[in-house]
Design a protein around this nucleic acid. Structure first.
Lengths: 332, 332
DNA sequence: ATCGTAATGCTCATTCCTAGCATTAGCGAT
DNA sequence: ATCGCTAATGCTAGGAATGAGCATTACGAT
């Protein structure tokens, strides 16, 4: 047996995003898994498309990922970007991967232009807010915050031993969930998920410790392994990137109306935007240019069709969508 | 032999940064390595502190990294952040790691408060512009750009077969190196390095292909493996993060003058900043607060000492240093 | 005292945003 | 045809944030 060559398995996980009908979707597959610590039989849980990196066959990590996704969802990826590499002991999600090999998982974000029914197998597009209901502020503050999350977190903070730790927890809750002096920062998806995990308010937390589910319902739909964490990482990254790189256009057809563009951004950012200001920002910012054509049947006055202006890449250092937030959940 | 458990070695690489005397430093160690494809004997090349991830002993990747750095440099890290995971075949730097195990390298960025002479072994703090001389615009545009880089890149672009490819290369050169309509974007350190690598203008490019060094001198000091690429990633990340997270303060003592703060930012960003505007931004932005004391012996009027205002973390969503660029290399 | 070097104060003209108001145009129903 | 609804587009008053400097103040050294 070779000396330092220990048992490491690298899992490549893809968060494939599309926006259809104004809703952000993530591509999932069903995985049959054994629920440890429970008497139940096998059950299917949602998972991201994933597969092991093959050190012999894959020339780069990204090529390995593309191969797996192609195989599991017959979708060929365009834009792909690496997210993060995790290897935390105890977050593998109650699956021992056979023989105790150490699992290192690398997450990727990929953007797809269309949410076609998605292939052969069990691949399925899911609304990403299914996993993070508290992240959708498009129609105002999600009720689950006041009803379950903040009370749950407050209890967790109170449960801390020393006063100093209680204070730290309180401050962390305020900053990540935008309470009091802090404001909601849509980019902190991962921080929020990690906090909920620590406070054992998401299903994975107890599962990973081998405990039975809590009596109160867990927040959002769980996923296998650490896949929900990876999805949270992807959402954070995408919401941030939106602002300084023209990534939205990877999710849109070559031509689109400004409303379609705005709805796509809103779907991703999880917040409503001021229509006129949004239009001014993208037009004056040189991100898009109108092509003469109009789109009828918009339900109102016909809208001009636009396309992405590639030239902006050379003109501006960080071309992205500023987010002119609409004060309240107001109509567009 | 276990089924899919192939030979993977994960290398943990640390880019440890400090700023001393207004210069950004990176912690390096010397590595004896065999230069493939050359008749020379072993020689010592600069490297980042690194070591393999131990799947049996390390609970998380980050803990593994901290262990290695502690061992090689007796420095204990504070702020640590993961950068990127690479596994490209052919970029391992002419070292076969014994028996053909696949090397996956994970880069980390760490910030240190002081550049003490750095420990026992061969650990040494190096000016990071030693590896990227073209990234330092503090005293104006680095001459190496006009003298070597742009001509070299232009030649590379011309050498492309089809016209279309030549056009693509030209555009890429313009955007990454800030030519013509594009402006220099200090964050694109990695993109610039990758471009130079492709154009074979850095030493690693030919070395990785087993070729002898080119006659014309290579740009910047090379490092082992893909370490210079990892350093470039770190610089990009740090230069970006500076603007939306108060990371500079991880590099400064608890109290400091505004000039010291500005010089630290300038050292990292590689550009001169407008003094009065910089002061206004950090003060009005609530990032710092004066403590009554003064520092004499500044060479001029005494300067007030400031400290980081932690409260800003709860007040603002993305507290960082805007960079009020100074038009020319002008004096502060 | 005089100079040189910094630290600080302030200004002014612009550019950017925020928050709306107002107008224009298809689509359907009456 | 006309009216009412829904969107798309135009525009603007005010306020806030920026970019570029000029001016003043305060040590240390000559």
């Amino acid at each position: 047996m070779a000396p330092r060559l220990t048992d490491i398995v690298i899992g490549l996980n893809a968060v494939v995003i599309a926006v259809t009908a104004g809703e952000p979707r993530v591509l999932t597959v069903r995985r049959v898994t054994h629920s440890l610590g429970r008497a139940t039989a096998n059950e299917a849980i949602e998972a991201l498309p994933f597969g092991p990196f093959d050190p012999a066959g894959h020339r780069t990590l990204e090529l390995g990922l593309r191969a797996w996704v192609g195989e599991q969802t017959d979708l060929s990826l365009g834009y792909v970007e690496q997210l993060y590499t995790f290897a935390d002991l105890g977050r593998e999600g109650g699956i021992s991967e056979g023989d105790g090999a150490r699992v290192v998982s690398i997450g990727y974000l990929a953007l797809a232009r269309e949410a076609k029914p998605a292939g052969q197998g069990e691949a399925q597009w899911m609304d990403w807010y299914r996993y993070f209901p508290w992240e959708d502020w498009r129609r105002g503050r999600p009720p689950v915050l006041a009803e379950a999350i903040l009370p749950g977190l407050a209890a967790w903070a109170r449960s801390a031993g020393e006063a100093e730790e209680r204070r730290r927890r309180d401050e962390r809750i305020r900053t990540t969930f935008g309470e009091a002096p802090a404001r909601w920062d849509e980019e902190r998806v991962l921080e929020r998920y990690e906090l909920l995990y620590e406070a054992e308010l998401v299903g994975e937390a107890r599962r990973d410790r081998g405990l039975p589910p809590a009596d109160q319902l867990a927040l959002g739909q769980p996923m296998v392994f650490d896949h929900r964490r990876i999805l949270a990482t992807a959402m954070s990254r995408l919401r941030g990137k939106l602002k300084y790189r023209p990534v939205v256009f990877e999710l849109l057809p070559p031509t689109f109306t400004l409303l379609r563009l705005q709805q796509t951004v809103e779907a991703l950012a999880g917040m409503g935007l001021h229509k006129q200001n949004f239009r001014r920002l993208v037009e004056q910012g040189g991100l898009v240019e109108g092509i003469g054509e109009m789109e009828r049947g918009t339900g109102g006055r016909p809208a001009e069709k636009f396309r992405f202006r590639r030239e902006v890449l050379v003109e501006r250092p960080a071309p992205g969508m500023r987010l002119p937030v609409a004060r309240r959940a107001g109509p567009h």
